[in-house]
Nucleic acid binder design. Structure first.
Length: 150
DNA sequence: GCCAACGTTGGC
DNA sequence: GCCAACGTTGGC
């Protein structure tokens, strides 16, 4: 099983939205590194749910991959801001996955906390901030979960 | 709202 | 295939 971190702006889709709906599809990823990470996901992989553009930003919950990567339908929707004229049905450019709600953390683990926490020095969210779907090690995942209980 | 860092596009 | 110009992300 693998671990990931996925970012969402709470104004657009928050952990409370996921808690209410139970599961969602992660549409709108239009970055190749992030897309490639989604294509590596397997059902059952665990996901740290991160609020970006929030005050403060940080990990607020845990989700689980419930459906492996499949073509993001919005890439063919002319009316969508995620429309991509260069993507064909034969060779879809963009993927999405489904994730389901697991838990909301008892307290958020802010980016500031992660920056100073022992064991998270190599975390991608610290070293390469902008990537919206990124791998997390099992150890990093556990450290974040422990911080949420502290 | 600013802007640094980073990704993508497209001319050559 | 390089790289300048441009667009976006996301912390602050």
């Amino acid at each position: 099983m693998q671990y990931w971190l996925m970012k969402s702006e709470p104004d657009v889709y928050s952990i409370d939205d996921l808690a209410r709906e139970g599961s969602t599809y992660w549409e709108g990823v239009r970055n190749y590194s992030a897309r490639n990470n989604m294509r590596k996901m397997a059902v059952g992989d665990m996901v740290l749910f991160y609020h970006s553009n929030a005050k403060p930003p940080g990990v607020v919950g845990v989700a689980r991959v419930s459906k492996e990567a499949y073509p993001d339908p919005f890439q063919w929707d002319h009316k969508s801001k995620y429309y991509d004229a260069k993507s064909t049905q034969e060779n879809p450019r963009w993927s999405t996955v489904d994730v389901e709600f697991v838990e909301k953390l008892p307290s958020m683990v802010s980016l500031d906390m992660m920056k100073t926490a022992k064991g998270l020095e190599e975390m991608v969210v610290i070293k390469r901030g902008r990537l919206s779907v990124q791998p997390v090690t099992a150890k990093q995942f556990e450290v974040v979960r422990r911080l949420a209980k502290a």
